[in-house]
Amino acid sequence: MISSLKVKIEQREGTSFLKDAYVTQPFRIVPVGQYKRDKAAHLMIMSSSPGLLDNDDHQLEFNLAPNTRMQLQTQAYQRLYHMENKSTQTTLINLESGSGFSFVPHPVVPQNQSTFISHNKAYLQDDCHFLLSDIITCGRKLSGEEFMYNHFQNLTEIYHHNKLVVKDNVLLQPQKLPIQGMGILEGFTHQGTLIYYNTANVLVSDFIDFFQETYGEQENIEFGISKLEGNGFIIRVLAQGAEKLFEAFQKIQQKVWEEAYL
């Protein structure tokens, strides 16, 4: 089933708001930041579906007008069910000058024989901030379905004035690769990726130092952060549980949001 969600964010007197939304089943989009003081639009994607089923195709689009800000969230873990074929998701983010977009979704739980292909494309003008993360679990571990999915792929591309500046491709195929071997998960069961990039000439060296000091020596995780060409960084984290990763990414998002966006 093809499912669509299209959002347009505008601003009035410095306050960002949901100008227009088009959704088809099973999506809903709900404002959740009525009591926030940062003048940004805080929205939650809700779904009446338990997860992605075989042949589902989710098409998401977010358009931010000049000088707007949006922080997006999800309501629950995203489940990928048993599939004969595959499910796909395409996310398009258009940021006009002076806008900011931040999205830390809940972790993805791939079940037995699931195949999921996701493609994120972000188009930034000048003076923009962009943050996006994803967390992939090993599956239903307590049900004995550890690494029994077929294929998980999340491709993210960031463009500045239509020039590709960042490309990141997470591809996990447990049935074809030694998933817990050297250079892949190395004995861990969960992987997280977070990308931050700005075209506002905000230097990221202080962010990198702070996050490395905060998470680099924590027990039971492997944390790495690298500077991107231009003003951005990418974080990779390996862990044994989803909640720890999700909470860490939420804290990282809030740190960046408070110091870079506001």
Rank of each mutant, 00 (worst) to 15 (best):
S114M: 00
G216S: 10
E213M: 11
K141T: 13
D57H: 09
V165D: 02
T88K: 13
Q125L: 10
K8Q: 12
T91M: 11
D168W: 08
L72P: 08
Q59F: 04
V204I: 05
S205H: 11
A200S: 11
N67V: 01
K176E: 13
A200Q: 08
V166D: 03
L155P: 01
G187C: 09
M83D: 00
G224C: 14
N55V: 01
G181E: 12
R236N: 11
L155D: 09
N198M: 05
H58F: 13
G33L: 09
D134K: 13
V23H: 06
F101T: 08
G224A: 15
Q253S: 12
Q212H: 08
V32C: 13
T115H: 14
E84S: 07
T91W: 02
I184Q: 10
N112G: 01
E186A: 11
E145C: 07
S143A: 12
F249E: 12
Y215W: 13
Q71K: 14
G187K: 06
G192P: 02
V165F: 05
A242W: 02
T137S: 15
Q73T: 11
A248V: 11
G230M: 05
V165G: 01
L185R: 08
L60E: 00
E222L: 15
H82G: 00
Q11G: 01
K244V: 15
F188S: 12
A40Y: 03
T90F: 11
N55K: 13
K255H: 05
A40C: 04
N85L: 08
E259G: 00
G216D: 10
E186H: 02
Y261M: 11
S97L: 05
Y215I: 12
G14F: 01
N112E: 04
F207N: 03
A41R: 02
Q75G: 03
Y35L: 14
T189L: 14
T91E: 05
S49W: 01
Q218V: 15
S143W: 14
H82L: 02
M46C: 13
